[in-house]
Amino acid sequence: MPYEWTSARGADPEAPLEELHLWPFRSLPRRGMALFLGATCALISLPLLAVVGSAVLWGLLPFLALAVGGMWLAIERSYRDGRVLEQLCLWPDRVALTRHNPRGPVQDWEANPHWVTVRLHADAGPVEDYLTLRGGGREVELGAFLAPEERRALYAELQDRMARLPR
């Protein structure tokens, strides 16, 4: 799943008891992107073999290079947009959520864990199984980029970990 819990507090008393990192799933790793673009270039160059040595080659080549360059730029943009990271930290006296956006400001939210409720909206949210945290006078979304089954699993884990916080 594209999230990970860490519980090692270590020697630092200020460190959170539990920490959750969430990120979007990457279905195409960098190596896969290189293979895809290489295969695309190879397949595009096959029809060009028929026109090698003629002026038609120079007429087609810029358009084919533009198509491959456009694919590369689109995939790179997808990677940049996918650099979202949500970090949820649980302490006995507070809960803090930080969202690092790829092209925007960092968003923060904090509340007392005694007043925080974890909610899973089956039908009421903008997506299926909309997961939110309510507390501190606000309701914030958690894991918008997760699949519905991942949000359901995270909901159960989050409720369990919130219940185990020392009061």
Rank of each mutant, 00 (worst) to 15 (best):
F145A: 08
H114Q: 14
H114A: 15
D81S: 08
L120R: 03
R80K: 14
T98N: 07
L88A: 11
W91G: 01
P113T: 06
W91F: 13
N101P: 02
C89L: 11
H121C: 03
W91A: 02
G82S: 14
Y130F: 15
E110T: 14
M162I: 11
G82Y: 02
R151M: 00
R99W: 02
Y79D: 12
H121D: 10
R83F: 05
T117M: 01
H114L: 13
D81H: 15
E139I: 04
L90D: 01
E141Q: 09
L120D: 02
V84I: 15
V127S: 12
P148M: 02
A147D: 07
H100P: 01
V95H: 04
L97A: 00
H100Y: 12
W109Q: 10
W109E: 00
R83Y: 02
W109D: 04
L97K: 09
G136E: 10
L90T: 02
P113D: 10
Y130W: 15
A144M: 08
P92I: 03
D123A: 13
R83K: 15
T132D: 07
G104A: 12
G143M: 05
Q87P: 03
A122I: 06
A147M: 13
L158F: 08
L133V: 05
Y130A: 05
G136M: 09
D108C: 10
Q107W: 01
T98A: 08
G136I: 12
W115H: 13
R151Q: 04
E110D: 08
R151F: 04
L154M: 09
P126Q: 10
L133H: 00
L146S: 04
E139Y: 08
D108Q: 14
W115V: 08
E141W: 05
A153T: 15
E139M: 06
W91Y: 15
